[in-house]
């Protein structure tokens, strides 16, 4: 028989569900608005007639955007930064977290404290900037001129993600590591064949964090990449935004769609890949990779 809810429980549930629904709609609305605005007619966009649904549907803003070589160039730069940036940062994080998870690591407590300290007292952009300059010096001495690599390499460290991974590695039972060692695995094989597969869900989560931050990365790309051809999507959007909201530059705009629609179309295109990735990563979020391995 189903238990009857008590009145206080009922009130709590109603309030929680209402708040969560409002929050979810609040998150969803800007995205739906961007889609509607990107495919609505010029008049509806310029006079603020769009509330939720599109008006005078047209796809010319997308056509213009797809016809822009700079857009595709920025898109490929973003893919480059996201792919290599995630790979590099994940590699650094996994190796760092594995070492920090081992009790036999010399000065382990100090290193862990050192890592967490950078989260408590973030020193702003100055150390990061100095890090970029130092990396740039190394790159220059090596003859690497592509600034994209600079953003990939110098952004490789993320204390929070290393801590997440360290905790996941610490949760792998010690006996399983010992079993692998007795089975003949080297330290690297233990990491590669036991720890990484057993921490798949955390690694997927951290990879997603890295990927999103690289995909949406704007500030350092803008600061460090001087060549316009190497700018990623977010910097490109910002440049277009500056251009399309400048009344002087837009004085001669005479298309059937608003200049804002192009910006919205750009935003929609920049969000879509992340939306596509989510469902693929989500399956790894399910816990229980280690179920049954050891008696608990």
């Amino acid at each position: 028989m189903k238990r009857k809810l008590e009145i206080s429980e009922l009130i709590f549930k109603v309030i929680s569900y209402t708040l969560l629904t409002v929050f979810a709609l609040g998150c969803l609305y800007p995205f739906l608005y961007a889609i509607s605005a990107s495919i609505s007619g010029r008049h509806a966009v310029e006079y603020g007639e769009i509330v939720l649904f599109p008006k005078d549907v047209q796809f010319d803003a997308f056509s213009q955007m797809f016809g822009d070589n700079m857009f595709w160039n920025a898109y490929s730069n973003t893919l480059f930064l996201t792919f290599y940036g995630t790979l590099w940062a994940l590699g650094v994080a996994i190796l760092g977290a594995y070492a920090l998870s081992k009790k036999r690591l010399l000065f382990r407590k100090f290193f862990n404290f050192y890592l967490v300290f950078t989260m408590w007292f973030a020193a702003g952009i100055v150390p990061q900037y100095l890090n970029y300059l130092a990396t740039k010096d190394v790159f220059n001495s090596m003859g690497i001129t592509d600034d994209k690599w600079l953003v990939v390499i110098a952004m490789g460290m993320a204390a929070m993600n290393i801590i997440l991974l360290r905790n996941a590695f610490e949760n792998v039972p010690g006996e399983i590591e010992e079993a692998a060692i007795v089975d003949g695995a080297s330290e690297f094989q233990v990491l590669q064949k036991v720890f990484i597969p057993m921490s798949k869900s955390t690694i997927a989560t951290v990879a997603l964090f890295f990927a999103i931050s690289r995909w949406n990365g704007y500030f350092w790309a803008r600061q460090m990449i001087s060549n316009q051809n190497e700018h990623p999507l977010q910097v490109f959007i910002r440049l277009r935004l500056e251009q399309y909201t400048d009344p002087e530059a837009m004085a001669g705009w005479n298309y059937s769609y608003a200049s804002d629609s192009v910006i919205y179309a750009l935003i929609v295109c920049s969000i879509v890949p992340i939306l596509i990735i989510y469902p693929f990563i989500q399956k790894y979020f399910a816990k229980g990779v280690n179920v049954g391995g050891v008696k608990e």
């Binding site: 039972p173 006996e175 399983i176 057993m198 798949k200 391995g293 050891v294």
Partner: peptide
Amino acid sequence: MAMVFQNYALYGHM
């Protein structure tokens, strides 16, 4: 040497 552990220590992902 091969070792059998008290709590099996099997690789749960394999």
